[in-house]
Amino acid sequence: MDGNFLNGYKVVNGILTSEYFENNYQNRNGELTVTTNSNPDCPDCPFSVCSYCDALDEVVIIAGGGNSASPINYVVLHNIFDFDGGGNSWGSGGGGSSGSSGTSPSTSDPCDKINSLGTNTDFKNKMTDLKNSTGLNYEKGYYIGLNGENSFTPINGNANQPYIDINPSSPISGFMHSHNTEGDSMFSPDDIRALYQLYDNNLMQNSSTFTFSVVTNQGTSYTIVIDDIAAFNNFGIANFNNQANFVNFSNTYTIDFFDAVSSGYDFITAREIAMLKALGNSGLILTKATSNFDDWKKLSSSRTNGIINGDCN
């Protein structure tokens, strides 16, 4: 079997401990040639050919290294291989990056953040502004924290268009937006993808306190926070890193909504059910506000697929 050596990794007890990269080990054609199985003479070498370990440099990886304080002790395929031409996110010798090296440490409890929203006057005022804007023919939004702590910087969509193109110039602490008369009562699949892209593009100041909110023309309002950044990273890679997976994510959400409506649920509840299913194992918490944004409850699926409003703790 012929092939090009790209990268090698050593995992001990589930912990990623080493990265191997090429050190001038090439044949005449500039390629490695794999010819045999493992050599018993070099039990410490993780590769099937002893000489790889002689010829490759080893970089010891310290979990939680890089710029991320999250103790990432695994490596995901996206970080190793170059998908969609974007290049991998591992600098040689850096290591430990989860693909979002600019995201600040996960030092705060996301539920503390959620529970504080009901007393955050600035936040509630802007949500009220969005609520009063759902009858417009465009979507409104605010970057949170773009121009200083607790700042709200407006960003609007175009007239008669159901989307907002966002392009924050630096990491933000949150984002909120409205759905107008043409919009659904819930985050759209594209909204969820954008949340992941903000993370993946290092545009969150702090992943554990980042808030992502929507106010809709149907009178509903929701905020998502990230409870498990590693799970969210894996969820995003699985669903949003190529078009086919995103199509599948979107269609699955649609069919769950169709099923819930067919079962007799009203449209708002059916979208909540479908979104909770779509966000299964995502590491995200979906919360819903009272009409005046004073109280936020965590939404969960009940055993019978209904919705439970509970405290976030």
Partner: peptide
Amino acid sequence: LQDREGIRLVKSDGAKQ
């Protein structure tokens, strides 16, 4: 045929969808 509802992050090179 129309665009879908959603937030769309402009790519780091400024390229929109």
